[in-house]
Design a binder for these strands. Sequence first.
DNA 1: CGCCGTTTTGATAAAACTCAATCATCGTGG
DNA 2: CCACGATGATTGAGTTTTATCAAAACGGCG
Lengths: 237, 237
Amino acid sequence: MPKITGTGHCPSCPIRHLSIFADLRPERLANIPFRPLITRYKAGETIYQQGERADALFTVRGGVIKIIRSLPDGRNHLLYLETTGALIGWDSFLEEHYSQSAIAVADAEVCRLPERDLNRLRHADLELDNAILRRWITSLRRAEDRMVDLSTRKGNEKLAAFLLDWCATAPPGDWVDLPLTRGELGEMLGLTVETISRFLADWRKRGIISEEHRRIRIDDLPALQRVAAGGERRRNN
Amino acid sequence: MPKITGTGHCPSCPIRHLSIFADLRPERLANIPFRPLITRYKAGETIYQQGERADALFTVRGGVIKIIRSLPDGRNHLLYLETTGALIGWDSFLEEHYSQSAIAVADAEVCRLPERDLNRLRHADLELDNAILRRWITSLRRAEDRMVDLSTRKGNEKLAAFLLDWCATAPPGDWVDLPLTRGELGEMLGLTVETISRFLADWRKRGIISEEHRRIRIDDLPALQRVAAGGERRRNN
DNA sequence: CGCCGTTTTGATAAAACTCAATCATCGTGG
DNA sequence: CCACGATGATTGAGTTTTATCAAAACGGCG
C-alpha cells in the first residue's frame, strides 16, 4: 500500500535542484499555489497504471521506477528506468489516459503534480515552461537513442551498454544497486530471461563483473566497454 | 539542389488544416509576423543534417521525408517517415544541433519556421502552444510505440505491420507509393536488405501483395494482418 | 548498349528463442 | 527453527530466426 507521507513545499524541497523547478526564481517559487502530495511506494507497487485517466505528473524524489507498456498478449516492454529527479506521466498533458504504467522496482517516493496546476504554472512562468520543454526534448531523444540501440545492436552489446550506463555515475569498481530481475532486463532490451542470464554468467566467469544480492560491480571496465562496442567478433563497417 | 519556391502565407496555406496552425483563430492567423520560406527538395536531397546548428523547424507540405540517425560506424537507423502535415526539427527548441538528418525520399516541399519566431508565437498564443504540446506528446508516444515494436516483434511481423500502417489511409486494394529501398526498410525495422527482400518475395509468391515500380498493393489484407499479429507459427502466451 | 545501384536467391553461420530440468533464495506458517 | 512453496536464476539441448557472404539477375539512365 502506497503511503502518503505529507505535502511538498517546493521552495525547501531537497531535490528541487534536480526538478523542473530548479531554475525558478525565488519569488516565483514562493508563489507556487499548491502543495503537491508526497507518496511513498514499496518495490512492486504501482504509481499509475496504463489505461487510467491521466491527470497528474510525478517528480521522482527517490528510488527506482520502471515505466512499462503492456501488450494485449500479456507481454511487457520496459520503456524507461527512472530515478531521482525524473518527471513522469507526460500523458496527462493530453488529458487522456496513461499509455504506460509506472511501477516502483525499488522503494520509491514521488511528488504528485496535478496537470491542471502544472499547466497553469507553465503558462505563467517562462522558465518553468522552458524547463518542461527541455525535459520533453531530452525524453524524445532518449527514446530515439533507445530505438537505435534496439535495432542496431546485438544482445550482448545492448546489455553491456546498459550496465555501463547504469553504473556510470558511481565511482568505477563500486557496487551499484541493480534492482531488476533478469526478466525485467530482458523486457527492456528485447531479450529473453535465458539470454540475459547467459551473458551475465559468462561475464562473471570471465571476471568482467560481480553480482551479489541485488547489486552489481564492474570489475573490468575496458572489457565491458569492448563488448558494448561490438568488440567480440568484429564487424567491419 | 533544393529550390526556394516562394514564401508561405499561412492564412491561405492549402495544408494549414494539417499543420500546427490549424486551430488558430483567424485574427491571430492574420497577425503571424513572418512569411516562412517554402523550399522544394528532390528525392535524395537533405533538408537538414545531423550535427548542424538547429535553428528551424519544418512543416512538411508534401512528399515523403525520412528522419535518420547516423552512427559513428557508418550505419544508419531510420527513425521516422514523415509525410504531409508533419512538423520536424524539434531539436531547434534546445537551440542546439540536429540529432538527426532529414532527407527527402520522394520529391518534397517544406515550409521553414525559424525557431525564434515560432517560439515567440507559441508564447503569445495559447492555441498554438497547445497544438505544439499535443504534437510533442504524440511524437513521444510514437517513439515509444516504435521501441515496443522493435523489441517485441519478429521481422515478418514488423514488416507486415509497417506495410499495413503505410497503406492504411488508401482504400483497400489500391496501389500505394512506397518510395523506399529494401535497405531503407531494413534500416527502419532493424533488419538486413536480404531479410526484407525474402519476406516480400515470399508474400508476392503467396499473392498477399503486389509490387510494381515503386508502388505496392495489398491483395490479401487478412493474410497480411495475420502475419503482423504473429499468426504464422503461433505463439501461445 | 553498358554501367551502376538495387534486388533476388542460395548456402552457411551466428544469434537468440524455446522447452525442460535443476538449483538458489527467501519469506511464511506450522 | 525448519520445512515448504514460490519466485527467480541457471544450464543444456535443440530449433527458429536472422545475419553474412557470394553470386547472379534486374532495371533505369546516360
